[in-house]
């Protein structure tokens, strides 16, 4: 059991390492965001819209940015009693409105919610941003705002604008491709924003390299076998070039081989069988 845990940790570490080594585009985006955190907002903070398909690694990029910002900007020695959060990361809650987004941010900032919190939620978030020396606010799954009604959407965008202006802090919102147009209704936010896209993996050498690294990280036997052209092409076609799908397919191939056929060695038939488990609407 302990060995399995250790192996799991090792594989997770290997995956993370492989991801950042091999994915130049993600690394460039991370550098952009870390550089943004180092810039003075100067009364006109920037809003970065990070978009890409589900599973392309937007959340991982945000986590990596948070880790690197913490390393780049350590807590000062004479810091007061406020918690030091150089990067604040939250996920857009269900039924996203201005209040609920602010409550989610407050929760992450460590402010207990009471019945009276809603009266001052936006002001309190802005106040804590200053006290906790936050340089970058990241809001994930921002495409959920688009599913809200027109009024709620407007409300959510207002909260973003207030946060950036009153908190005087840069912001990054991450979501699906459709979130690229999230600021189309708000000229002020649109003029402050830049868009970073995560494009799917191209067929050929980059995908083969990714498959090899993932297979090695998951712990499949003979990992180079999965990067051979025939199998790599099938995996790429089934995964649609999405990082998360590559990983899912390899993981479930291993499960099929182990659970269904009782062996550790993963064969092409197992990959094919695992691909059938995926919903067909992904193909559309």
């Amino acid at each position: 059991m302990a060995q399995a845990d250790k192996r799991g940790l090792a594989s997770a570490g290997a995956l993370r390492q492989a991801f950042w080594i091999d994915f130049d585009e993600a690394r460039a985006h991370v550098n952009t965001l870390v550089g943004l955190a180092g810039e003075d907002p100067d009364d006109r903070p920037t809003c970065v819209v990070l978009v890409g398909q589900s599973g392309m690694g937007k959340t991982s990029i945000l986590k990596e940015v948070g880790r690197r910002i913490e390393l780049a900007y350590p807590e000062p020695a004479d810091w007061g009693d406020a918690r030091y959060i150089p990067m604040l990361r939250a996920v857009v809650p269900s039924h996203p409105t201005s209040l609920r987004i602010n409550l989610a941010l407050l929760w992450k900032q460590g402010w207990p919610l009471t019945r009276r919190t809603h009266q001052i939620a936006d002001l309190k978030v802005a106040e804590l941003l200053g006290e906790q020396a936050t340089r970058l606010v990241a809001v994930d799954n921002v495409h959920a705002v688009l599913t809200a009604s027109g009024r709620a959407r407007r409300d959510a965008l207002d909260s973003f604008r207030f946060l950036m202006s009153e908190g005087n802090v840069h912001m990054v919102v991450a979501g699906l491709d459709i979130a690229a147009d999230i600021f189309s209704d708000d000229v002020e936010l649109a003029y402050r924003s830049i868009i970073l896209r995560l494009t799917p993996w191209a067929p050929g050498e980059p995908s083969q390299q990714l498959i090899r690294v993932l297979a090695r990280g998951i712990g499949l036997s003979e990992p180079d076998r999965f990067a051979e052209p025939e199998m790599a092409e099938f995996i790429w076609r089934t995964s649609h070039g999405v990082t998360g799908n590559f990983k899912r397919l390899l993981h479930w191939s291993q499960r099929v081989a182990r659970d269904t056929h009782g062996r550790e060695h993963v064969e092409f038939s197992d990959v094919y069988e695992a691909a059938r488990l995926f919903p067909c609407y992904i193909d559309r």
Binding site: D81, R83, P93, S94, A104, W107, G110, W111, L128
Partner: peptide, 18 residues
């Protein structure tokens, strides 16, 4: 996100009152 969901992911407090 409901309060029950938040409860699963508590954060350290905003101020470190020692």
């Amino acid at each position: 996100m409901r309060r029950e969901e938040w409860k699963r992911d508590p954060a350290p407090l905003a101020y470190r009152v020692l």
